[in-house]
C-alpha cells in the first residue's frame, strides 16, 4: 500500500494537469459544439498564448501583479487573432466536408507555428512563476506549489463562469440555439455570423489563457502546440465532443489516469490513457457525456 501522503500528492498533480487540459480542451469542444469544425489549430493558439505571455513579461518586467496582466494581455491578443482568423478565413469552412476542415486547420497550424518561429526563434523561452506564488504549501505531508493551488481553484472557477454564461444569459441561449439549428436562429433575427465570431474569440481566449498560465511551469518552445492538441483531443473524445461537462469530466479522468497509471504501469501510463479512449470509443462513440451525432 503506498503512503497516503504520496497518494494525495499524486491526485493533486493529476487534478492540476486536468484543470490545464480543461482550459484548453473546453475551447476546442466549444468550437466543435457550435461551429461544427474540428479546430486542429487550437493547440497553436495555446502556444501563441505562451509566447505572448513571455513577450509581455519581457516588456512589463517582473513585479507583483505583472504576470497576471501579461497573462490576460496574452489571452486577449490571441482572442483578437482568433477573431480575425474567423472573420477572414474560417467562415468559408462551415458546412464543408470534414476533410477540408482538417486540411485547412492543419495548414493553419503550420503557418502560425512557422510565423512564431520567425518572431521568437527556436530557442526555448522561460517565464518565471509570479513572485507572489513562488512558495509552496505542505498538506498531509505532500508539497503543493502555490501556483498549482491557484490553477486548481481557477479551473473550476472558469468552468462555472462558462456554465453560467451558457445557461443563464441571453448570449448563452443564442450559442446553445446556434449549436442546434443555425438557420432557424438566423431566421429569428439573430446575427449568427457575429455570434460565430464571438464564439471563436471566446474559444481562442481560453486557449491563449491556457498557454499563458502554463508558461511558468513549462518551457515555451516550438512544437508545444502539436503536443497539447493530441491531449486535448483525447480529453474531448473521452468526455464527448461538444459537451461542456463532458470536457470537464474527460480532463479529470485524463489527469487521474495519467497520475496513477505510472504506479501500475510505470512505463506505459500514456498507454493507459489511450486504452481508455479506445474503450470509450467502442462503448460510447459519442463520449461519456456527449450526444450521438445526428
Amino acid at each position: 500500500m503506498p503512503d497516503p501522503s504520496f497518494v494525495f500528492a499524486q491526485s493533486i498533480s493529476g487534478l492540476t494537469a486536468a484543470m490545464f487540459l480543461f482550459l484548453i480542451a473546453s475551447g476546442l469542444s466549444l468550437i466543435f459544439g457550435v461551429l461544427r469544425v474540428l479546430n486542429f489549430a487550437h493547440g497553436t493558439f495555446y502556444m501563441l498564448g505562451a509566447y505572448a505571455a513571455y513577450q509581455l513579461v519581457q516588456w512589463l518586467g517582473v513585479g507583483p501583479g505583472r504576470f497576471w496582466l501579461a497573462a490576460l494581455g496574452a489571452a486577449a491578443a490571441v482572442a483578437a487573432l482568433g477573431g480575425l482568423i474567423e472573420r477572414v478565413l474560417f467562415r468559408h469552412l462551415y458546412g464543408k466536408e470534414e476533410l477540408y476542415q482538417l486540411l485547412f486547420t492543419y495548414a493553419l497550424v503550420l503557418v502560425l507555428s512557422d510565423s512564431a518561429k520567425m518572431v521568437w526563434g527556436t530557442q526555448q523561452k522561460s517565464v518565471s512563476r509570479p513572485p507572489e506564488l513562488t512558495g509552496s504549501f505542505s498538506v498531509f505531508g505532500a508539497t503543493i506549489p502555490s501556483y498549482n493551488l491557484l490553477i486548481l481553484l481557477l479551473g473550476p472557477a472558469i468552468a462555472l463562469a462558462f456554465w453560467f454564461v451558457l445557461q443563464r444569459t441571453r448570449v448563452g441561449r443564442f450559442i446553445r440555439a446556434a449549436a442546434l439549428d443555425r438557420e432557424t436562429l438566423g431566421a429569428l433575427g439573430v446575427n449568427v455570423s457575429a455570434l460565430y465570431t464571438w464564439v471563436f474569440v471566446l474559444a481562442s481566449f481560453l486557449g491563449g489563457l491556457g498557454g499563458a498560465l502554463i508558461s511558468p511551469m513549462r518551457a515555451t518552445t516550438p512544437g508545444m502546440d502539436t503536443e497539447v492538441i493530441v491531449e486535448a483531443f483525447v480529453v474531448v473524445v473521452i468526455g464527448g465532443l461538444g459537451s461542456f461537462w463532458g470536457t470537464f469530466l474527460g480532463a479529470l479522468i485524463y489527469g487521474q489516469v495519467l497520475s496513477f497509471g505510472i504506479l501500475l504501469f510505470p512505463r506505459f501510463s500514456i498507454f493507459a490513457v489511450f486504452a481508455l479512449m479506445a474503450a470509450v470509443l467502442i462503448v460510447r462513440p459519442w463520449g461519456l457525456l456527449g450526444r450521438p451525432l445526428r
Binding site: 503506498p2 504520496f6 500528492a9 498533480s13 497539447v228 497520475s259 510505470p266
Partner: peptide, 20 residues
C-alpha cells in the same frame, strides 16, 4: 527509476513517485 515518455510536459506524477 522513472521513465516519462520523450517530450513529456507534466512531470509532477513522476516526481511525486520518485520522491516517495
Amino acid at each position: 527509476q522513472q521513465w516519462p515518455k520523450l517530450g513529456e510536459q507534466d512531470y509532477n506524477p513522476f516526481i511525486n513517485a520518485q520522491m516517495a
